[in-house]
Amino acid sequence: MRPVIPYVTAALLFGLGVYGVLRRRNAVLVLMAVELMLNAVNLILVTADTTAKALLPHGGQVFALFVIVLAAAEIGVGLAIVLQLYRMRASVAVDEVPLAERPDDEAVPVEPVGVSGTGRPKGER
């Protein structure tokens, strides 16, 4: 087997994934682009495993299995974050996600637990 073809294919897939991460505004499409990059890495690992069998038998396949498990966990956490973002903002555009904390004048003051015994924001008695 010629290893050049899978390596070039993996490079194209990875480049397409990087383009998707950098250019997309929708969080679901960004997650899909990350999955495309992980699949490109899997293709490289399996190709390297088949071309260099003497160094570590089935090492690439084992690493590819770990990447698949990592991708499944990443999708679970990522979709949970996207769902919560949609509930809060009614949009999944990554440009609208606030990266900084709220200013102090918008913060809701909370009494420490034990001072008044409620632990709730002021005004909610």
Rank of each mutant, 00 (worst) to 15 (best):
residue 84 Q to L: 10
residue 64 A to V: 09
residue 30 V to Q: 10
residue 80 A to I: 08
residue 79 L to S: 04
residue 125 R to C: 06
residue 79 L to R: 04
residue 66 F to A: 15
residue 66 F to C: 13
residue 98 P to Q: 05
residue 16 L to G: 13
residue 37 M to Q: 12
residue 73 A to F: 13
residue 91 S to I: 01
residue 89 R to Y: 02
residue 59 G to N: 05
residue 102 R to K: 12
residue 2 R to C: 05
residue 44 I to H: 01
residue 99 L to M: 02
residue 12 L to Y: 06
residue 83 L to N: 09
residue 114 G to E: 02
residue 42 N to G: 13
residue 103 P to T: 03
residue 96 E to L: 10
residue 24 R to V: 04
residue 30 V to L: 10
residue 6 P to V: 03
residue 23 R to W: 08
residue 106 E to C: 01
residue 80 A to P: 00
residue 7 Y to K: 01
residue 12 L to A: 15
residue 93 A to W: 05
residue 85 L to R: 00
residue 62 V to R: 09
residue 60 G to M: 01
residue 65 L to E: 08
residue 112 P to W: 03
residue 3 P to E: 09
residue 104 D to W: 11
residue 2 R to N: 13
residue 123 G to Y: 00
residue 62 V to Y: 12
residue 61 Q to G: 15
residue 80 A to W: 11
residue 98 P to V: 00
residue 87 R to E: 11
residue 61 Q to V: 14
residue 75 I to H: 03
residue 98 P to A: 03
residue 66 F to V: 13
residue 76 G to E: 05
residue 104 D to K: 13
residue 109 P to M: 04
residue 32 M to R: 10
residue 6 P to F: 02
residue 50 T to C: 06
residue 102 R to Y: 05
residue 40 A to V: 07
residue 92 V to N: 06
residue 37 M to K: 05
residue 67 V to H: 02
residue 13 L to M: 15
residue 93 A to Q: 09
residue 19 Y to R: 07
residue 26 N to D: 15
residue 5 I to Y: 09
residue 48 A to K: 11
residue 53 K to P: 15
residue 36 L to S: 11
residue 56 L to C: 06
residue 60 G to R: 02
residue 6 P to G: 02
residue 96 E to Y: 01
residue 64 A to R: 04
residue 105 D to V: 09
residue 119 G to I: 01
residue 36 L to R: 09
residue 64 A to M: 10
residue 21 V to R: 03
residue 62 V to S: 12
residue 52 A to H: 14
residue 52 A to L: 15
residue 87 R to D: 11
residue 44 I to S: 11
residue 16 L to D: 03
residue 15 G to S: 12
residue 11 A to R: 02
residue 71 A to D: 08
residue 66 F to S: 12
residue 49 D to G: 11
residue 57 P to F: 14
residue 100 A to C: 08
residue 29 L to S: 07
residue 39 N to D: 10
residue 123 G to F: 06
residue 68 I to Y: 12
residue 46 V to C: 03
residue 60 G to T: 00
residue 40 A to D: 05
residue 15 G to L: 14
residue 45 L to K: 06
residue 53 K to Q: 14
residue 50 T to W: 14
residue 111 E to C: 11
residue 11 A to H: 02
residue 85 L to W: 03
residue 35 E to R: 08
residue 112 P to T: 07
residue 93 A to I: 00
residue 26 N to E: 13
residue 58 H to F: 15
residue 96 E to C: 00
residue 80 A to Q: 08
residue 26 N to V: 08
residue 97 V to R: 00
residue 123 G to A: 02
residue 77 V to K: 05
residue 72 A to Q: 01
residue 109 P to G: 08
